[in-house]
């Protein structure tokens, strides 16, 4: 990697809910095109970390830099501008229920990017075509399968030309036979050079994409390293136990 400045850098991200520490000074940095995968048990703080990175949840402490420029979250303009450049994929899709697939992708182009309606429509259609849903453009979320919904949500995020994507367990709410179609879209994204952080339990799939795997537990990074190392020869006993357990559960092995 020649990029001297990471696309995204976070230092000392901490978050407490009441007296409970959800995140304890988590730091990470991603270079352009780098893919990092967050693994760990439920409640480890993976979702909270992703939401803090997008400033959907305000961290109690910590600093974030996008392409070397620190994000000033006290300024609203800076905050909204930052979120716009960071794509977010949610576990339960969060498609806008009152809009069809095309409008779901188009609305932020019109409202946030201030594109004119026709240009936005064309762009939205292109993004839907990229995830193979051009024929479902006029269907509403309730008429789409889970896999289709997640693909629309990926198209919606990509339409904003994000510099980095955060994926919060993108396949966890899907039926087993629908996981594949979403994985293919994510793999295409990685191959196209998208920088991303993905929280997932599909560690076999994640291992094929990730440059680095990060094992989290109790709000802290326990261990990070290349997937092959983490899954077979993790230094930490807890990481090994988690990886073998989840590998068994999902019928995947490294």
């Amino acid at each position: 990697m020649t990029a001297a400045v990471p696309i995204l850098r976070a230092e000392g991200i901490s978050k407490n809910y009441g007296s409970k520490a959800i995140l304890k000074e988590v730091s990470l940095a991603l270079d352009r095109g780098e893919v990092k995968v967050l693994i760990g048990p439920s409640g480890a703080g993976k979702s909270t970390l992703l939401q803090c990175l997008n400033l959907l949840v305000m961290p109690d402490a910590g600093r974030i830099w996008l392409e070397g420029r620190e994000v000033d979250r006290s300024r609203r303009k800076g905050l909204y501008g930052y979120r716009r450049q960071v794509g977010m994929i949610f576990q339960d899709f969060n498609l806008f229920d009152h809009l069809n697939a095309l409008e779901n992708v188009r609305i932020a182009l019109v409202r946030v990017k201030k594109m004119d309606r026709d240009a936005a429509r064309e762009r939205a259609m292109n993004e839907l075509a990229k995830v193979g849903l051009q024929d479902h453009a006029d269907k509403y979320p309730a008429q789409l399968s889970g896999g289709q919904k997640q693909r629309v949500s990926i198209a919606r995020a990509l339409a904003m030309d994000p510099k980095i994507m955060l994926l919060d367990e993108p396949t966890s709410a899907l039926d087993p036979e629908l996981i594949g179609e979403v994985m293919i879209v994510i793999r295409d994204l990685v191959q196209a050079g998208m920088t991303m952080i993905m929280a997932t339990h599909q560690i076999g799939f994640a291992a094929t994409l990730a440059d680095e795997m990060i094992f989290m537990e109790d709000g802290a990074v326990i261990e990070a390293g290349p997937p092959a190392k983490l899954m077979t020869a993790a230094e930490c006993e807890r990481t090994r136990a988690f990886c073998s357990k989840i590998g068994e559960l999902y019928g995947e092995s490294a």
Partner: peptide, 21 residues
Amino acid sequence: RGQMQAALALGFTRFQGIRSI
């Protein structure tokens, strides 16, 4: 809650999120 979260994640202001979503 996810509806507003998705809007904010796309760069909507809170006001825009309330109005459009």
